[in-house]
């Protein structure tokens, strides 16, 4: 298996979500390693806009033919946008996982957000983590 791709501008959770800060919002998707493990993604179940989430909450589900995995919020806040395009073309998650964002979270405050981001892994740390996990 080829080495999983990384987005150098993102931080990573142990449950394989990536998060990028864009315009003050936390944008969340699943990593290349995660989509590779799932194989062909067939459906993405997205949260409702307006939902309040805590870091670590299961807020979305990503399904392949043989598996279904929860997607956790890596940071706390309010869901302000969901990528409904994934409902019709879930294959985007396989094709370009760092473009296929799932949802955007407005953080409680930028300080909170920074604290939560600091607890996540850098691309290098995540790469090592994936390798150790044996994926």
């Amino acid at each position: 298996m080829s080495k999983p791709k990384l987005d150098p501008n993102a931080k990573y959770a142990k449950s394989h979500e990536w998060v990028r800060v864009e315009d003050g919002l936390a944008v969340v998707g699943i990593s290349d390693a995660a989509q590779e493990m799932l194989s062909d993604v067939v459906f993405v179940d997205l949260p409702e806009v307006g939902e309040e989430v805590e870091a670590g909450d299961a807020v979305a589900v990503v399904e392949s033919v043989k598996a279904a995995e929860d997607v956790y919020a890596p940071v706390s806040g309010t869901i302000v946008a969901v990528n409904t395009a994934l409902e019709d073309t879930p294959e985007q998650v396989n094709d370009d996982p760092y473009d296929a964002w799932f949802f955007k979270i407005r953080p409680v405050s930028q300080e909170e957000l920074q604290k939560e981001l600091d607890a996540l892994m850098s691309p290098e740390e995540y790469a090592e983590y994936v390798e150790q996990e044996g994926h």
């Binding site: 459906f43 399904e63 392949s64 033919v65 043989k66 598996a67 279904a68």
Partner: peptide
């Protein structure tokens, strides 16, 4: 749509 079902979920 088997990912809804008990043997997977």
């Amino acid at each position: 749509l088997v990912a809804r079902e008990q043997f997977i979920r």
